[in-house]
Design a protein around this nucleic acid. Structure first.
Length: 471
RNA sequence: GGCUGGAUGGCAGAGUGGUCAUGCAGCGGACUGCAACUCCGUUCACGCCGGUUCGAUUCCGACUCCAGCCUCCA
């Protein structure tokens, strides 16, 4: 089955053709670690995690590289504000990032290079660019990329160099030959953070670290480069200019960019200061609800982070776990068994079409209905349907929790204690209600049920007894 | 202003040249002591104007509006 991927470079959905048969080199721009990750980071992390999991399930050998930018002006400024060494700040933020990733079931990439671990590669690449006149050393000691010398500049985002110049936003800098040039190496004084090198003492500018890390881990030309919605310009445009000038080869075949996360229908940005960190979000919502929410739109569409939409995601996920409730013990199918399934076929058709997770969900919801019907009729295929549902969920990193635990957790974590009702207390009230029901004292039974409902506990009666879940 | 992408039912959100998206919500029914869960049925749709076509929400063009990037940001 052919895999189609929307390529930012061509602005078209294209049939994916790997450089080497069966293999995919994937580089995703990771985090600049000067603060906690926010919900926008979460989207990129979760989207490429789901994509990578899916590709591997289709027998692609994926080499997934996601970098950490751990040296940068924002980091140095923040460290100075905190009056701490910048490596202390980045170490703390990297730990926090890893915690957030684990919570969201984001698997580790195959490698996670850090800018400070690639200083030699960065220096070599800049030296190469200087030697070939793609870069020059300015009077202030900074080294800039000579944008004019790279004729393809702007091919990713279709910008016109002259118009870029007329845009007043380009910062005029006396040291530059041309205001459009950007820094590769920033000169550093002895008492500033920097590395000694043939380029002079300094530190890398933003952009060059990704060119160095990606080409040194995946080769001068690789398959897919991904990132957030604000990266095509200037970051990826500059990466192309640096890398292709340095190697003389095509840098990347497919460019993938996630859509923006909005907050209550407002643009989310650092300057508006309206972003939510992942850890704040996880205080309100179960991590799988957040993951499900992020995957419930196509990865390229804008998505709106709001109370309503998160509640909706929770309800959707609850539908899956309700269906799996009586099948928590079913074993996962092996690959061959799963691939026999017609549901699997529909699911993969959706995913092979530029990773259409929402369409894949539609197939899973239809499977849920079939499963519920089978279970109601006590059909023998119910267990197999449940196993297929879990199998499809696993391809996206979903539905791995114990259904009862998920439903009784009520879509958030750790709220049972603050609710004032322990599981034991709930069970006691349910037993009391059972007694009232047996005695046909329905008024008392309803009173108990309403009491529990007021505390966020929903009861569900069945022939086998009463189950409960939190809203 | 330039460059991208989009406009689908009450909301969210896919997709298709002519028969169903899907989820939530609503309505009717089954189940239930009553509910909840679940199942069955069902209402509600493709921004606006032209064109192509036997037929367009789907293709083409104009228009209007919205979002992202062009400034730190994933």
């Amino acid at each position: 089955m052919t895999l189609k991927i929307y390529n930012t470079l061509t602005r078209k959905k294209e049939t994916f053709r790997p450089i080497r048969e069966g293999e995919i080199g994937l580089y995703v721009c990771g985090i600049t670690v000067y603060d906690y990750c926010h919900i926008g980071h979460a989207r990129v992390l979760v989207a490429f995690d789901a994509i990578t999991r899916y590709l591997r399930s289709q027998d692609w050998q994926v080499n997934y590289v996601r970098n950490i930018t751990d040296i940068d002006d924002k980091i140095l400024n923040r460290a100075a504000e905190n009056n701490e060494d910048y490596t202390k700040l980045t170490a703390r933020m990297i730990n926090a990032m890893h915690e957030d990733e684990r919570a969201l079931a984001v698997l580790e990439p195959d490698s996670e290079p850090r800018a400070t671990g690639h200083i030699d590669n960065i220096i070599n690449m800049i030296q190469n660019l200087v030697d070939n006149h793609y870069a020059y050393r300015a009077d202030n000691g900074d080294i800039y990329y000579r944008v004019k010398r790279f004729p393809d500049y702007g091919k990713l985002t279709n910008i016109n160099l002259d118009e870029l110049l007329s845009g007043a936003r380009v910062e005029p800098d006396e040291a530059k030959e041309d205001p459009r040039d950007f820094a590769l190496w920033k000169a550093a004084a002895e008492d500033e953070t920097g590395w000694d090198s043939p380029l002079g003492r300094g530190r890398p500018g933003w952009h060059i670290e990704c060119s160095a890390m990606s080409t040194s881990t995946l080769g001068e030309t690789f398959d897919i480069h991904g990132g957030g919605p604000d990266l095509p310009f200037p970051h990826h445009e500059n990466e192309i200019a640096q890398s292709e000038a340095a190697t003389g080869k095509t840098f990347v075949h497919y460019w993938m960019h996630a859509g923006a996360v909005r907050v209550d229908d407002e643009k989310m940005s650092k300057s508006l200061n309206n972003f939510f960190t992942i850890r704040e979000v996880l205080k309100k919502y179960h991590p799988e609800v957040v993951r499900f929410f992020l995957l419930s739109s196509h990865y390229r569409s804008p998505i709106n982070y709001s109370e309503d939409n998160l509640i909706e995601a929770r309800q959707g996920l609850e539908r899956f776990y309700q269906a799996l409730r009586d099948f928590s013990d079913v074993a996962l199918l092996n690959d061959d068994e799963l691939k026999q399934s017609s549901w699997y076929k529909r699911f993969t058709e959706a995913m092979n079409d530029d990773f259409n997770t929402r369409e894949a969900f539609a197939a899973m919801y239809d499977l849920v209905r079939e499963l519920n019907t089978a279970a109601r009729e006590q059909r023998s295929d119910a267990r197999h349907l449940a196993a297929q549902l879990k199998g499809l969920g696993a391809l996206l990193g979903l539905l791995d929790a114990d259904p009862e635990t998920f439903l009784q957790g009520g879509g958030t974590l750790g709220q049972s204690a603050s609710d004032g009702l322990s599981e034991q207390q709930i069970e006691i009230l349910i037993t009391e209600r059972e007694a009232a029901k047996t005695a046909k004292d329905y008024a008392r039974a309803d009173e108990l049920r309403e009491q529990l409902q007021g505390l966020g506990v929903i009861l569900e009666d069945s022939r086998e007894g009463t189950r409960w879940r939190r809203e």
